[in-house]
């Protein structure tokens, strides 16, 4: 079963259009939705969660059509959004009580264990938390009602490397055959660490969706002169960056002539080059 299926998802605003978007998140995998600010990542996530209404297309979550399956289906979804909306006057204990009254499968023991594991005080007000603590609390709440799908929007942005790693470790442990994660971020290095699939969204369009490992195998970085580049099949060259000493090009490894050295490319370089070209 797929955790999420988007088919022809479209949403238009005055100066921005998302889609049409086709995207699948298989169960048991982590999909990283990457893109620059304003690329449409949050709009996509909000469409999935029915916080905004798409103009066209269909959204299926855990095999059920939404928004018809909401609100009961939200029992199965844990969400951490960038724009946190937990009232500042609540402490972690009260947040737990609030969640317990909303989720039928809320597990107070799991919540308390996450508070202890993430070193979160239960009697400190949310507004006095640091950004890292706020994110950790939101994550603890999202993981304490036995959700099968986690949706996170910029959950690691603005956090120090240690907290980011802590969060990534928890997400990595969460994802097994019965669970899935959709994680949007513009911190590509975080996505590279844990994602199975990468979807690159640029100016509202899905530029690529592929298995991360295959993506890194398929593409490489060719450093050569402009004349050498001109001799190559243009369709095998996805993007290029011209320097005063030559050209750096993102190419399809398999389609390069023998004898050329193609270096490995990391996800961040790949995304930056693609974004620049598009």
């Amino acid at each position: 079963m797929n955790a999420i299926e988007l088919r022809g998802l479209t949403k238009s605003y005055q100066s921005f259009q998302l889609g049409p978007l086709d995207l699948t998140l298989p169960m048991g995998t982590i999909l990283g939705l990457v893109g620059e600010n304003g690329a449409g990542k949050s709009t996509t996530l909000k469409s999935i969660l029915d916080l905004i209404r798409p103009d066209a297309g269909s959204v299926t979550v855990l095999g059920q059509t939404v928004p018809d399956a909401y609100p009961s289906l939200k029992e199965e979804i844990g969400v951490v959004l960038d724009e946190l909306a937990i009232p500042g006057f609540l402490d972690a204990r009260e947040v737990g009580k609030l969640m317990a009254s909303a989720y039928s499968n809320w597990d107070e023991q799991v919540y308390q264990s996450y508070l202890a594991k993430l070193d979160l005080p239960s009697n400190k007000k949310y507004k006095d938390f640091s950004r890292g603590m706020k994110m950790k609390l939101a994550l603890a709440a999202a993981l304490s009602h036995h959700a099968r799908l986690l949706i996170l929007d910029e959950a690691t942005s603005g956090l120090d490397p240690m907290v980011r790693q802590e969060i990534l470790d928890i997400l990595y442990d969460f994802c097994d055959e019965e669970h899935a994660i959709l994680l949007s971020s513009h911190i590509v290095s975080d996505l590279e660490k844990i994602c199975d699939y990468i979807a690159f969204l640029h100016k509202g369009r899905l530029v690529l969706v592929e298995e991360k490992d295959r993506l890194l195998e398929r593409f490489g970085l060719l450093k050569c002169s402009e004349a050498d580049l001109a001799a190559l099949d243009p369709s095998a060259v996805l993007a290029k960056r011209v320097h005063h000493y030559g050209v750096e090009a993102l190419v399809e490894r398999d389609r390069m002539p023998a004898g050329l050295t193609v270096d490995a490319v990391n996800l961040e370089e790949l995304i930056i080059l693609l974004a620049k070209e598009k």
Binding site: L49, D50, L51, Y70, P71, S72, L73, K74, E75, I77, V79, L81, E83, A85, I86, P87, G88, M99, A102, Y103, S104
Partner: peptide, 21 residues
């Protein structure tokens, strides 16, 4: 007003709470 200023409605709608409720 207080809920609106802290965007609490968005939080509620992420939980199993319907708009009608």
């Amino acid at each position: 007003q207080l809920n609106d200023s802290s965007r609490v409605d968005a939080l509620l709608l992420l939980m199993p709470v319907g708009r009608q409720t």
